[in-house]
Computed example of a mutant assay.
Amino acid sequence: MATVLSLSGSPSASSRTARLLRHLDARVAEHGHTVVPLDVRTLPAGPLLHADTSDPGIARAVDLVESADGIIVGTPIYKAAYSGLLKSLLDLLPQSALAGKTVLPLATGGTATHVLAIDYALRPVLSSMGAHHVVQGWFVLDRHITVHDGGVSVDPAAEEGLHKVVDRFTRALASQSDLSAVR
């Protein structure tokens, strides 16, 4: 099966976005995929901001992106855009870093007015980096995510939508693997 990088672009250590991703990682793993979590906030700040790909932590992050078959990109939405922390990582990656990969964009935010940030801010960047397939993204309101004991629970309506997009993502990964096997 595929290797999936679950990438959180949240700067917060108590991030709902990161916890939501870890919650969804289990569903991806249930489909037989290997999931590798990465919280961008754990990367060394100086080398990240200076795009120093010789730094071991940054080099490891670049390698994780390169070796993944699929990537789930999660970000909180701030001021109608994805996080600056995520932007810092995307900016240091090679232009073709997502070539041949299936990508699922996910976002969280305080109001429904931020839902368009996925399609108007994040999706174009992911596509420009050569993603083979950017599946339909999903937005979850902060109030639909409840943090407890290190985990989360998600409002049932939001959870249903999340399951649909995650399952669509895993099907796209399987199709991509099938195509690769034929070549």
Rank of each mutant, 00 (worst) to 15 (best):
V35C: 10
T102L: 04
H114E: 02
R143K: 14
V135D: 01
K87T: 13
L86N: 03
H50M: 04
Q136V: 07
S128N: 15
H114K: 00
D91C: 08
H114T: 01
L89M: 15
G100S: 03
P37T: 04
G84W: 03
A26P: 00
R19S: 03
P76N: 13
K79W: 14
I71M: 09
L90R: 11
L93D: 03
G130M: 08
T17W: 08
R27M: 09
R143M: 10
D52V: 02
L49D: 04
A45Q: 13
L85D: 02
A99H: 06
A45K: 09
V40W: 11
L93F: 06
G57C: 11
I58R: 01
V115C: 00
V135W: 00
R123E: 13
H132G: 07
V65M: 05
A112K: 07
A59R: 15
T102Y: 01
G57K: 07
S88W: 04
T113F: 10
P56E: 11
L122N: 02
K79C: 13
I71C: 04
A99G: 06
Q95V: 10
S128F: 06
V36M: 06
L24E: 08
R19T: 04
I71R: 03
D142I: 12
L86H: 11
H132K: 14
L141A: 15
D119R: 01
V115T: 10
R123I: 05
V40M: 06
I118L: 15
L38S: 00
P76F: 14
A107S: 14
Y82T: 03
A121H: 14
L89C: 10
Q95A: 12
P105V: 02
H31C: 12
A107H: 06
H33Y: 02
G137N: 12
Y82N: 01
L48R: 02
V65R: 04
P47R: 06
D63T: 11
H132A: 14
A97K: 07
V35G: 06
L38T: 01
L98D: 07
L116Y: 04
I58A: 02
G32M: 07
Q95R: 11
